[in-house]
Design a protein around this nucleic acid. Structure first.
Length: 615
RNA sequence: GGGGGCGUAGCUCAGCUGGUUAGAGCGCUGGCCUGUCACGCCAGAGGUCGCGGGUUCGAGUCCCGUCGCUCCCGCCA
């Protein structure tokens, strides 16, 4: 017989000898027993999932992590009363004989449904009080109850399996990364504040009064330093901390990234490393949905903004916008023509097979558009070779054929028009695109569509101050290098900066990094930072760049969002074991909390409360 | 920081234009029931209607404030 350390916990395994030396708690798990076990004396431990009490005959569904087994006892047994008195969710250990069920009483909906355990001995291991939420129910409980009693919520099937899925996804990612030659490292949790980006979490220093550590917003600088240290290919399931407000798809405070960085690579090399990992993981855990095959489409930022109105397009949506400003310029439809004169653009949204929708469909959309603050949502229907609808008459043959060339509409389609300033047109067009596709159920729910968004602008103007600032990561390499920084209009410079998007959800951003100090100085100079300031803020990294830095780049897909997509969950709490509320509180552990005075004194910290309203 | 939704029994919710003793399902307690699998049947307990103030003869319901949960905007290099 194998030594205990080599015994695996697999369904069907008897992992401890049965008989006189029966294990104290269990010989099998609650998902194990099959018809082959009939006649054996076994021991199970688990939670009372549900009882069916017939007075003189009592069924107990005993549940553990692995499954449910029906146990049965009748009033002739001396321990009948003990089982009858135990509440749901009480942890018990039962010993008895496995018996086959009669044909009429087999339960084909559970794997153990052909047998049941006749209870001969019972021990209550952990009694349960009256429950604040019922584990054996699909009822949708309020967040407050669920989070305060998360340990109960986690017993329930849906969250329990989400968390297991999360674990399996992470294991699978680790395996795929390791097999590609990536090496996993840990980076510091207590580090320095990062000068750009989100709000930091600060940790006061006991040894250095008045000084603070910060929790890393991401291991960005560390992973670059790992490349400069010559490790070539790094990855980590990295905790990241940002003190920003939560959303349904954004935990307050903390989240995890698959953080990766590679040396001597181009943008394409990074894509080639990540694509098989993402495609593989989504195929493995995507519940049979189709997954974009590598190489994923690469969409330049500018194209994405024009076609989808956003840099995180949902490619499941077949509607692609195009610019038709010229088609409407100078027509008698004054709303558009005058708008165009004042600098507005017109975007077309061709919607396949929408021409036969009832009038009310178009009216409803128009009402919605006005409520969103747009002028409206004009449209033309193409039916039986004719252009129909309220504004169709403003376009002559020439203009209509031009429109067809641009949008590629076919007979039976409808084309919607958005006329706004370019930025608003993109924003509102994106909303309309999503809205229309949802109304007409054009979104394929059985697929994961990936794409890379590439060629992000290096700089943008701050809309309030009009000053030049980094539009993404200041450590990205500008396309064209130093030459571009010196010669081009900064707003025309692109960066080797890219996002990966799946079904309209941004999974990560990444970049080829700027590994040349002189380019770094220049890039920051354009954004208004003096060399001395750059040195003060990024001294450590800048220093490393000066002692032989390899070209390098990477990315960091969000683990939580990957699991959300795979689990089909809309809310990140459903895939997080111990989440906080939207107000960043842990209701179960009671965090954050007031700490003792001595605690604070040790850290040289004094609390000053914000003024209350009547002060 | 701002906007929306929700807050009634342990839990999920109903409660009309303000009007007698605030209801249901699940859970809980007690009773009956030997083949159920969301077992069934009978009975019972359980409520400061989030909290504070106001309007009114009368407030779960209307108004103001406040707290909690949530969704969104801002924020998230």
């Amino acid at each position: 017989m194998a030594s205990p350390s080599r015994i695996e916990l697999r369904p069907g395994n008897v992992f401890i000898g049965v008989g006189t030396d029966m294990h104290e708690y269990r010989t099998h798990r609650c998902g194990d027993l099959r018809i082959e076990h009939a006649g054996e004396k076994v021991r199970l431990s688990g939670w009372i999932h549900r009882k069916r009490d017939h007075g003189n005959l009592l069924f107990v569904d005993l549940r553990d992590h692995y499954g449910i087994t029906q146990c049965v006892v009748d009033s002739s047994s001396p321990i009948f009363g003990v089982v009858e008195d135990a509440r749901n969710e009480t942890v018990i250990c039962v010993t008895g004989k496995v018996v086959p069920r009669s044909d009429e009483t087999v339960n084909s909906s559970i794997p153990t449904g052909e047998v049941e355990l006749v209870i001969q001995e019972v021990e209550v291991l952990g009694p349960a009080e009256t429950l604040p939420l019922q584990v054996n129910s699909d009822e949708d409980y309020g967040e407050e109850t669920r989070l305060r009693f998360r340990f109960l919520d986690l017993r329930r099937d849906r969250v329990h399996s989400n968390i297991v899925l999360r674990s399996r996804v992470i294991s699978d990612i680790r395996r795929r990364m390791t097999e590609q030659g990536f090496v996993e490292f840990q980076t510091p949790i207590l580090t320095s504040t990062s000068p750009e980006g989100a709000r930091d979490f600060l940790v006061p220093s006991r040894l250095h009064p008045g000084q603070f550590y910060a929790l890393p917003q991401a291991p960005q600088q560390f992973k670059q330093l790992i490349m400069m240290a010559g490790f070539d290919r790094y990855f980590q399931i990295a905790p990241c901390f940002r003190d920003e407000d939560a959303r349904a798809d954004r935990s307050p405070g903390e989240f995890y990234q698959l953080d990766i960085e590679m040396s001597f690579v181009t943008q394409e090399d990074v894509f080639a490393a990540l694509e098989p990992v993402l495609n593989g993981v989504f195929n493995e855990f995507g519940d049979g949905k189709t997954v974009t095959a590598a190489p994923f489409p690469r969409i330049p930022y500018e194209d994405a903004m024009l076609k989808y109105g956003t840099d995180k397009p949902d490619l499941r949506n077949p509607i692609e916008m195009s610019d038709v400003t010229d088609v409407w310029r100078g027509t008698d439809f004054k709303i558009f023509a005058k708008g165009i004169e004042k600098g507005a653009v017109v975007r077309a949204l061709p919607v396949p097979s929408a021409a036969n929708q009832p009038r009310s469909f178009f009216d409803k959309l128009n009402d919605w558009a006005r409520k969103e603050g747009a002028g409206g949502l004009g449209y033309i229907l193409f039916q039986d070779g004719e252009a129909k609808g309220p504004i169709a008459r403003f376009l002559d043959e020439d203009r209509l054929s031009k429109l067809q060339n641009i949008t590629g509409f076919e007979d039976g389609d409808a084309v919607f028009f958005v006329c706004e300033r370019a930025e608003t047109a993109a924003e509102f067009g994106a909303l309309a695109r999503t809205r229309i596709a949802n109304e007409l159920e054009l979104i394929d729910q059985n697929t994961f569509k990936f794409c890379w968004i590439i060629d992000y602008p290096m700089y943008e103007l701050d809309p309030r101050t009009g000053t030049l600032e980094f539009s993404h990561n200041p450590f990205s390499m500008p396309q064209g290098g130093l030459e571009a920084l010196e010669a081009k209009d900064p707003l025309d410079i692109k960066a080797f900066q890219y996002d990966i998007v799946c079904n309209g959800i941004e999974l990560s951003s990444g970049a080829i990094r700027n590994h040349r100090p002189e380019i770094m100085y220049k890039a920051f100079e354009l954004a208004g930072y003096a060399a001395s300031e750059v040195e003060a803020r990024f001294g450590g990294m800048l220093n490393a760049l000066k002692f032989g830095a390899p070209p390098h780049g990477g990315s960091a897909p969000g683990i939580d969002r990957i699991v959300m997509l795979l689990a089909g969950e809309e809310n990140i709490r459903e895939v997080t074991m111990f989440p906080m509320t939207q107000q960043a509180q842990d209701l179960m552990m009671g965090a954050p909390a007031v700490v003792s005075k001595s605690h604070l004194e040790e850290l040289h910290v004094r609390v000053e409360m914000p003024p209350t309203k009547d002060e």
